[in-house]
Write a protein that binds this DNA or RNA. Sequence first.
DNA 1: AATATTACTATACATTTGTATAGTATATGA
DNA 2: TCATATACTATACAAATGTATAGTAATATT
Lengths: 220, 220
Amino acid sequence: MKITDRQKAVLGKIHDFIMLNSYPPTARDVAEMMGFSSPKAATDHFTSLEKKGYIKRNSLARSIKLTDKALGMLKKDYSFPSPADAGHAGISYLPLIGNIAAGNPVLAYENIDEYIPVPESFTGAYGADFALRVKGRSMTGDHILDGDMIMVKARNTAENGEIVVALINDEAVVKRFYKTKDGIELVSSNTDYPPIKISIKDAGDSVKIIGRVVAVHRNI
Amino acid sequence: MKITDRQKAVLGKIHDFIMLNSYPPTARDVAEMMGFSSPKAATDHFTSLEKKGYIKRNSLARSIKLTDKALGMLKKDYSFPSPADAGHAGISYLPLIGNIAAGNPVLAYENIDEYIPVPESFTGAYGADFALRVKGRSMTGDHILDGDMIMVKARNTAENGEIVVALINDEAVVKRFYKTKDGIELVSSNTDYPPIKISIKDAGDSVKIIGRVVAVHRNI
DNA sequence: AATATTACTATACATTTGTATAGTATATGA
DNA sequence: TCATATACTATACAAATGTATAGTAATATT
């Protein structure tokens, strides 16, 4: 017997709840999330999900446990991290943005490759909203290398001199932001790459600031 | 107000329970583990632990959450390196080494400032054993800056060309490691800093390789 | 020395919560 | 087509659970 779409949705809600609260939901929590008016609807799903090997439980309060099978499926479908990581306060999960599909908002589901656990101490006072992997060498002067992962606080404005992520024709670029007399300038810190100048009348059309870089991570 | 031994024991039991069951314990669970005959004894401890910032809870069933503070403290007491996490973990706690006290082993309790949660995906295939904050600009050529946090896999040997952490007279330095005809050479990637050459007969005395740098993290 | 905190026992009560009963409607598979 | 599984609503009950009351005793703290 295969898992149904509805059961999958319930499983997803259980997972989301654990991620958010770090303890499992009750039948009533799930019923509310799913819009059921009776907890029985939720427990019926639990029974099915347990029979199919996606959860384990005993008849105690909040004792649902997601199995590896569930985690595998969720990972396939939503690329979520293991809820075993939850329960650790101070860790947030940043969506790792892959290729940015034209037209979609940056944080659109379609753009999210996976979620990565990041300790909040790694993202500074204001936190971060998403992560990106850097492509190219345009910011080597600021010690941001090809392949580095950057963590970004979502914002559509920037202060002079800040390192920002901007969308230029649906491509994410990392640059230093400067205001000029007649617009803005996005400057690479590698002099091989010329600065991009945008006049006020063009700005907003092809170029959009999507956030400020708050952290850089690199595996060696 | 400092945490008491008894409160620490309760915190440990909560941690153990979560690790074992993946959902938090009730007051009665804790009472049983601790040998209390009343759940009130446990909730009294919960109240103290919450006041001291080790747990968070609301008045729902099994809603205890351990804080970073608690996890850091538990790691310290639970012997090094990371114990129970092993399961699905995804996150390990690296001791952040502060000043290295003369004579002590690098990972000695005295040297550990705090424990920081780090996703295992941040530390590569072999993981890391501790973290250090970089002082000075000697490795800017390799894009490792003053103030960066580096994650280190403990090892007392190194391959040619690897970026290592070495102890020179009880001071931790980050350098590239090279073998020479008559010993080793620790090379800065900032040419302002001259290479350090150690002949075989001196090596082992004043210089000790303590690990390989596997990751760099920087807040901007 | 007086006071507050810690560390419990014992009992009880009100919520929270899992689960059961009873039923409707739709979809699926043999 | 007939049985089975899915997907719920509505109500209710019993167990699980947080928390309160009322104490005792030891240990810190001022």
